[in-house]
Computed example of a mutant assay.
Amino acid sequence: MESFTFEAIGTLFEIGTDRPLGDAVEWTLLREAERFDWVWSRFRPDSLVAQMRAGTGRWDLPAESAALSELYARLYRVTKGAVNPWIGSSLERIGYGPGYELVPSGAPEPAPLWDADHVWEGTAVVLKYPAVLDIGAAGKGLLVDRFGAILADAGHDEFVIDGSGDILHAGAEPLRAALEHPYNADEAIGVIDVQGRSLCASAGNRRAWGDGFHHLLDARTGAPVRAVVAAWALADDAMTADALATALFVARGPDLVAEFAGPDGAPEWLQVFSDGHAEGSPAFLEGLFT
């Protein structure tokens, strides 16, 4: 299998295909990564999101914003406010800001309320006051999907896109993926087959610092989640899988995935808790090592 590896949105992407991509497709992928980063990154000072940090009023976002705002509205409702795209200010307060200070500036604070303080509907955002929009719960998955669309448009029907653990697969042969141990990246706690779908993971050990701080917060408190230490979701698209893997830190699995059920059933899911036990759907539980 041919491989194309590059960095984008602060992480590593590897794209495997059954034949070479060619310069034109590679350039299209890199150009899309740069465009996406300029719009959505809260870590670069020239991004659209960074400009919102210092402004108020109406802001117009690109077309993919419509799917994101709809997804976040559903997550906000299902998790009773625990998943909230206005979590950016809470993340920066505990040290996960543009300068990667990794030192809290104060006690955790809740995120602004959805629609009460700011409105995000379709491709338009209206800010009452400067705010920090953060799409980390689903953004990387969305970019993986956009890469997949570029490959499909170029005639590639067999590929694997791996965005540092967010995987999108297309093709006749399933991919067997390992589930990384939440406390030891060199070990796995199980395996699962991925075919024509997306597998995404979230874990508190990936971006952790200081005295128990990490990037997976409950937006209602602004504090890191302690009970769940790792979560996975398997869905038809990477944006949904990425969002569910994050939401599983603050929501019960069965209740959450039921809201995202389609004609072929609900997404598959797995939660691993700090006391060592796991809960999930059969597709994941059957692949856990004993």
Rank of each mutant, 00 (worst) to 15 (best):
T5R: 15
I9S: 04
I9N: 09
G22V: 03
A24R: 15
E26F: 14
W27E: 14
T28I: 11
T28F: 13
L30D: 00
R31A: 08
A33S: 12
A33T: 05
R35T: 11
D37T: 06
D37P: 04
V39A: 05
P45N: 13
V49H: 08
Q51R: 15
G57N: 05
W59A: 10
W59D: 07
L61V: 01
P62I: 05
A63H: 14
L68G: 11
L71T: 02
A73W: 03
R77A: 02
V78E: 04
T79W: 00
T79N: 08
G81K: 00
A82Y: 03
S89K: 09
G97H: 06
Y100K: 15
Y100A: 15
L102F: 06
V103L: 06
G106K: 09
P108Q: 07
E109T: 13
P112V: 00
A116Y: 10
V119Q: 03
W120D: 03
G122A: 01
G122L: 03
A124K: 12
L127W: 03
K128N: 10
A131D: 07
G136K: 07
G136S: 00
G139D: 10
V144D: 07
R146A: 12
R146G: 12
F147K: 11
G148Y: 00
G148V: 12
I150C: 13
L151A: 03
D157T: 01
E158Q: 14
F159V: 05
V160H: 02
I161P: 03
L168D: 02
H169S: 05
P174Y: 02
A178Q: 14
D186Y: 15
E187P: 13
I192S: 10
S198G: 07
L199Q: 08
L199I: 09
A201M: 08
S202V: 01
R206L: 08
A208E: 00
D211G: 10
G212F: 11
D218T: 05
A219V: 07
R220Q: 06
T221E: 01
V229Q: 10
A230E: 06
W232I: 11
A235E: 09
A235P: 11
A235N: 10
T246S: 10
T246W: 01
V250T: 09
R252P: 14
D255R: 15
V257W: 11
E259I: 10
A261S: 13
G262R: 12
G262D: 12
P267F: 04
W269I: 10
L270G: 05
L270Q: 04
S274P: 12
D275C: 14
P282H: 04
L285Q: 04
L288Y: 03
